[in-house]
Design a protein around this nucleic acid. Structure first.
Lengths: 119, 119
DNA sequence: CTTCGTTATGTTTGTGGAAATATAACGACG
DNA sequence: CGTCGTTATATTTCCACAAACATAACGAAG
């Protein structure tokens, strides 16, 4: 493979992994990071800001996650102390763990396959 | 994982794999199919038509492939008998073979990981 | 020297999806 | 109640990117 590529340019193997439902994506790397930020910050709006994403987009993603899950993955409260907030539920935490693991195995796959590009 | 998903919806794992250079994609599933069509039909324009793609887009992809390869992957001739044509070079054929193989290993990975969603 | 189907390349137009904007509701708390 | 930061949701604006369109050049062959 290497012999085919221009030797003066650095190439790398990349890829994406996601879980899709019949009419909507369910999980992917972006949603994983969003869940992680919500878990760390306790709010959708702060997570969105931290990721440079509009609140609406973040909320739409959370809504899509919750709609496709058996139980809510993110619990929300509007109003109240400090205006409200959001928490990642136990189910949400499990999804984070499992998708992180799947993602790690995918990275390993990419690294192994990527060897073929250089050597 | 399965316990998290709505049981009335079918979910599946999906993904993409590609090789990228510093400022442009080099190879992906779409380019693979384009190369296969060019090889089968002997012309960029016929390959584009067969794929429902504009000629310009197909030509841009071929150009991107050739610019990033050590040797041309697709040889072209403008004018002449039947207006000219395009051939996939030996190097192009090798790229097809190797990327097909990589793609097959990726599909196997997806299938193995996808088991976790259902069972 | 015209025709033909192709490669080659620039320009214009369209459009899907993201981003931006706007507004309402929520509820604890002082 | 009025304030505050948030969730919730609809509407409008914007823009990157694809598609469409246009045109030139190519070269064998009649």
């Amino acid at each position: 493979m290497k012999e085919l590529l221009r030797p003066d340019l650095p190439f790398r193997l990349n890829g994406r992994l996601w879980i899709e439902g019949p009419d909507d994506r369910f999980m992917g790397i972006g949603r994983l990071e969003l869940l992680q930020h919500i878990h760390a910050l306790g709010s959708i709006s702060q997570a969105a800001k931290a990721m440079g994403m509009s609140y609406k987009r973040a909320w739409d993603l959370v809504n899509s996650l919750n709609r496709q899950a058996r139980q809510p993955l993110v619990g929300t409260q509007a109003g109240g102390t400090r205006g409200g907030g959001a928490v990642v539920t136990a189910e949400g935490l499990e999804l984070i763990r499992e998708f992180e693991a799947m993602q790690a195995r995918f990275q390993a796959f990419l690294a192994a396959e990527g060897q073929r590009l250089t050597q």
